[in-house]
Write a protein that binds this DNA or RNA. Structure first.
Lengths: 267, 267
DNA sequence: CGACAATATTCCGTATTTCGGAACATTTAA
DNA sequence: TTAAATGTTCCGAAATACGGAATATTGTCG
């Protein structure tokens, strides 16, 4: 009666709101009614009714129970299965990450450049009790992350300038590099060494080591990284992990190569 | 070069087209490019570009590989996992069906009334080599299916008339009941006996026995049925399966009851 | 049975969104 | 460097979503 917890369903476009609705429904282990969803989401009833109707017509939901309730539809469940069965790419990447975490004992992640930010594609946490909790899907500015520096280091200086000009170098910690000249120097160093470090530049106490996942044609758009509390892994010890990181990167390279579609089926 | 196989992506509403696109992408085990999708679906390039962009912004897809290719996004994969993990309802139903098929040796399905048609919610095939292949998600008119007669038998005659008036009794086989008076008599018999039979009324050679999944409050909207080739299972032998069907129906009743949300979690 | 309450469904004018041809930008190949 | 292929942006016309209010359908209680 008193619970007015509203699970916001947002989305820039009406289209995307439907996915939010599906998520709400998929999380439940029970049938849902129109009225129940109205109370849960706060959306107007006719709007929800239309959405449910669309999803039902598409087979993503189905009426169930007494006919006025909804559950996930066959088509949606099939899509879910197809996706999880067929996506060896992400499965393989995840396996590589997990192995790397086993080896180094710290949280690791795979990242990609998306716009001017670094996006966490996947992540496996360390089993150690003390850890930074950063979840996949989140974003970090390029200039203060190890992976981001790698991506910047691959670009021509004009590309880099264009990217950074529109997003000023925000200062996250005392050590964040906010001076463009200093950043250029740092990037030059990264290019020479072939690896990048984040020395508490994004979060105090968090250090990070990253290398690019190599790519045949030229620039790469993904990187692997280890992240650890500096208390447990000071910089010198962090650098000892380079060979293991490199091996993981090669494994990822092979996976991505195959997923790029050079190995067609017939002929 | 010569392959002009176009995977149609339809949908009454723009929203639904996105699901079609996701299905195309989820089925692949490789990254897809904009151009590749243009060739595969036949949709105009700007349209596809916008759709991909929306899905990417929503996290349902992610750019991958060299950054101009797409693969399934984290949010979509999480949705898939949530759905498959959390949906004990459909899993339990499927298990009941499978057990029933083991017992009776013939294909079985769970159906629901949707409009004036019977919708196959789930189905498990017999291992026998000779079988009718009817896939879940397909629809059959109510008047010539065992399940449909059960649903009709629960209605008041005015409800039934309204439903049938707008969809004339189509004749599928020699035995299809197309005379309204005969149908009323048949339905009266179904109500008395508590089960319904389809004696080659939809497909020649196919017989079917169905019972309702009971429901506490009154009318039920789902049924269980056995379907078999009449050659292997003549009517008399088919009726011997009634007790087993009934037991499956009770099991399903319990599952649906729990899913209806009477057993809330806290307090 | 009839009246009331709760829920589901339809209507419909207004406000957004989608659509996709054409122009433009970027990357890859030669 | 040029040419070819692919990706991206523009923008007016057409289609769609929106949601308050009215209506229809249950379900419940006297």
């Amino acid at each position: 009666m008193s619970t007015s917890e509203v699970t916001r369903i947002d989305g820039d476009t009406p289209t995307l709101r439907l996915f939010g609705l599906l998520e709400v429904i998929a999380q439940k282990d029970q049938f849902v009614s129109l009225q129940g969803l109205v109370e849960e989401t706060g959306l107007p009833k006719p709007t929800l009714h239309r959405m449910l109707q669309q999803l039902e017509n598409a087979g993503m939901l189905q009426r169930d129970g007494d006919g006025r309730q909804y559950s996930t539809g066959l088509r949606l469940r099939q899509l879910a299965e197809t996706l999880l069965l067929n996506n060896t790419v992400h499965g393989a990447r995840h396996a590589v990450l997990r192995r790397l975490v086993d080896e180094v004992g710290e949280s690791c992640n795979i990242t990609a450049l998306s716009g001017a930010e670094v996006l966490y594609l996947d992540r496996v946490e360390t089993p150690a009790p003390l850890r930074f909790y950063l979840h996949p899907g989140s974003r970090v500015p390029a200039h203060c992350s190890a992976s981001g520096k790698l991506f910047l280091a691959q670009m021509s200086s004009s590309q880099r300038r264009r990217l950074l000009e529109h997003s000023p170098l925000e200062k996250y910690t005392e050590k964040t590099i906010v001076d463009p000249v200093a950043l250029e120097a740092e990037i030059e160093r990264v290019r020479r060494d072939g690896y990048a470090v984040d020395n508490e530049e994004f979060l105090p106490g968090l250090v990070c080591l990253a290398v690019l996942v190599p790519r045949a044609g030229g620039r790469s758009n993904s990187a692997v990284a280890v992240q650890a509390p500096v208390i447990r892994l000071p910089l010198e010890k962090l650098l000892d992990l380079l060979p293991k990181l490199g091996r993981a990167a090669s494994a990822l390279e092979r996976i991505e190569f195959e997923a790029t579609g050079d190995g067609r089926d017939s002929a």
